[in-house]
Design a protein around this nucleic acid. Sequence first.
DNA 1: GAGCACAAACTGTGATCACAGGCTAGAGCC
DNA 2: GGCTCTAGCCTGTGATCACAGTTTGTGCTC
Lengths: 234, 234
Amino acid sequence: MTDPVAAVLPLHLSTVDDFSVVDGEPLNGRVYATLRAQLMSGVFEPGEMISIRGLAEKLGTSTMPVREALHRLIADHAIEARANRTIALPIIRRADYLAVCDVRLALEGLAAERAAGHLSPDDLERLERLTAGMRAAAKGNDPHTYLALNKDFHLTIYQLAGNPLLLDLIEKLWVRAGPVMNYLFRHQGLAMQTVTPHEAIIAALRRADGVAARLAVQRDIREATPGIIASLPD
Amino acid sequence: MTDPVAAVLPLHLSTVDDFSVVDGEPLNGRVYATLRAQLMSGVFEPGEMISIRGLAEKLGTSTMPVREALHRLIADHAIEARANRTIALPIIRRADYLAVCDVRLALEGLAAERAAGHLSPDDLERLERLTAGMRAAAKGNDPHTYLALNKDFHLTIYQLAGNPLLLDLIEKLWVRAGPVMNYLFRHQGLAMQTVTPHEAIIAALRRADGVAARLAVQRDIREATPGIIASLPD
DNA sequence: GAGCACAAACTGTGATCACAGGCTAGAGCC
DNA sequence: GGCTCTAGCCTGTGATCACAGTTTGTGCTC
């Protein structure tokens, strides 16, 4: 969680020999964390089929850790086991995305409200920096960086809510929505994306105004919705 | 979801030969569903250690389906893999339970609000019946039935919200809280439990008043909280 | 040239085995 | 009698193999 780009890039660049070194944590846990990060950063595309053996070969492990990691992701609904004995990324339809948004509005609104008042000057400065980075990424039409910074912006706030369960649920929603977001932004550009809602969020948090922070976050989520569901099937 | 007692009881009574018959669904999925139901109905106790081989033997399968099912439950935080290479049910502390409640208030409140207006007369009559059953179970001091009916009451409503993701998240919260609830109610009885909040919920739903339904559900959650956290560690 | 059938390669699943680490109980020593 | 060390059992983990099902690609036939 230091530099968002550095925290994401290495995962989808060098996926091979990260697992050669053995430390305490079991392999399946590291595979799970890696795949989670890769899903959020758009390494996989919606509908893409995932093969246990293929993934194991790419990661340099046997199939076992991958099997267990994939089953965790199935429980998260980040991937789905289809009837054909096939594992694939789900294809999000409009109704699915609206359902996700409905829950996001509730959970992320709550997290923002709880986070208000717990931000240090360093935190606020970090949010400013992330927003500036997003503005630059939008200008340079760099969807990958834009989304990574956006993710870091939101999760930085929610982390300060001090509710690990809440943060975990929100992260799982982002893992779930990651592939679609990356796919859409990569194919339709960042034309309409503005960062003005983020400035309102920062302003509310600076005033330690929980209700305003909740409303600002909800506005941020709502404003991004129409441009996304317009490109979804159904 | 027909009769709550019948839907729960067989799972924790006959856990042996349910898996001898083979149908389409993979074994690991059935093990996962079974363990989820067992966690919710209080078959396991907080802090109890779970052995892969022991569970596999009890279920009459090999260790593989159990391993994958347990890893799904680990992703749900329904069970946890400890550092000692041990799998056990988490011990919920006060802060943990309050965190769960905070999320429950948001998610179940939202679900109740969304469900209002989607209830048929049959649904309302079903809720009345479940509440009556709870009242009887409280009088007879039957915690298991009480909790099963309470679960069914709430999930029946949330199911009618028409948001599968929301329902899934809420169910996972209940799976997570199941062991503690059953343990506490079994050891401290149902003395203080009333069903008056449920009547308020039904009344609001009958009027198709979403906001009132949300508030009534939140009141139901809040009223049960003090009696529970008083018995939790920390 | 187009359509069908067969075969090969792929899929996830389940089972079994080996292994390193942790826990416990028992035996030996002080 | 109490403490310590050790041996054995149990834990999850990782790897490998067999199998049934699906999909795909190729070759043959019409």
